[in-house]
Simulated assay, not measured.
Amino acid sequence: MDAFGPETYGALNADIYDDWHAALDPTEAVRALAELIEEGPAGPVLELAVGTGRVTLPLAATGVDLCGIDASEAMVERLRAKPGGDRIPVTIGDMADVAPDTDASFAMVFVVFSTFFFLADQDEQVRCFANVARRLLPGGRFVLECPMPDVGRYDRDQRVEAHQVGLGHVRLTAVRHDPVAQRFEGQHVLIAEGGIRLAPAFLRYAWPSELDLMARLAGLRRVHRWGGWRREPFRAEGSYVTVYEKPAD
């Protein structure tokens, strides 16, 4: 994984990303984000790691003034090939930089699924929080959807899991866990009649309390933590949603 960079995941996964993540229905995320945007100050909205636009496109269709940043040109090409995708302004760059080609301020910045953890180490994650805070309007919000780290799943800090088993194919994940660095290094493995396809993924996870500290260092305060996009109670399991806010005064 030494050569794994911000653009690597998209470069190697863009053509199969939507198919492999079809079960991640963005409907609830889009609805909840639209509600949060209505509650906050007026202004443009930025998605970090916009990817193939699975959230950005339906959210933009509601009338939100939305732009994005992503490290992968291959992922953004997929976005732009979809209806309405060519109308979403997207910067190619590191999401920790937030918006390197503009001085714009945002009413909201958000990042969904587990993508924030694609930032390779704690320093990059702290830098992302600081840059988001700098770009937010007073009263603006930083919204993150993150998976709760489930380190108990790993036997001797490794795990192999079967996701699909068919007559002509098997899709697995093979993951190693580094508890010191808080890292998961893994491969999606598709074994089919035509051969073997590998799609690597690298995550540096953070605990909710660690994210809260990053926010405090950046001058943001936590206003919500839910167990999902329906504002369920947070129970430290599965994926959860956190809303941080830049003080208005």
Rank of each mutant, 00 (worst) to 15 (best):
I191Y: 08
H188Q: 12
L217Y: 14
Q187W: 14
R235C: 10
V112A: 10
D19V: 07
G51Q: 01
L136A: 04
A104L: 13
S114D: 11
F184S: 08
R156N: 14
A215D: 06
G40S: 11
R176H: 14
P147A: 06
G84T: 01
A162T: 15
D123L: 06
L217G: 12
F113M: 12
V98L: 03
A130C: 04
T102F: 08
R134M: 09
Y17W: 12
I69S: 08
L66K: 03
E193C: 09
V180A: 09
P138I: 07
A49I: 05
G139Y: 09
R31M: 11
T115A: 12
Q125A: 00
W226A: 05
Q182I: 04
R127M: 00
M108W: 08
E39D: 15
G85S: 10
D123M: 11
E77N: 14
A218W: 01
Y17M: 06
L144C: 04
L12F: 09
V112L: 12
F202A: 10
H224Q: 15
V132P: 03
A199G: 13
G186C: 04
P208F: 03
A218E: 02
M214T: 09
L167F: 15
D19W: 13
D121K: 08
W229I: 09
L211A: 07
R127Q: 12
R134S: 14
H224L: 07
P247M: 10
G227K: 00
P6S: 13
F4D: 01
N13V: 06
Y154I: 03
L79G: 11
R141A: 05
A96G: 07
G5N: 14
T102L: 03
M95Q: 02
Q164C: 13
A215G: 11
V170N: 12
D97Q: 07
A42P: 11
L190N: 03
E38D: 15
Q164K: 14
W20Y: 10
Q187E: 15
Y17C: 02
R54H: 02
L211C: 11
V132I: 10
P89F: 06
G227R: 00
L217T: 06
A99Y: 10
D2V: 14
E35W: 11
E161V: 13
T27H: 09
E245R: 05
D150A: 05
S72Q: 06
S105L: 15
C67E: 13
M1P: 07
R225H: 12
S114C: 13
C67D: 12
Q187C: 14
A61C: 06
G85P: 07
E237Y: 02
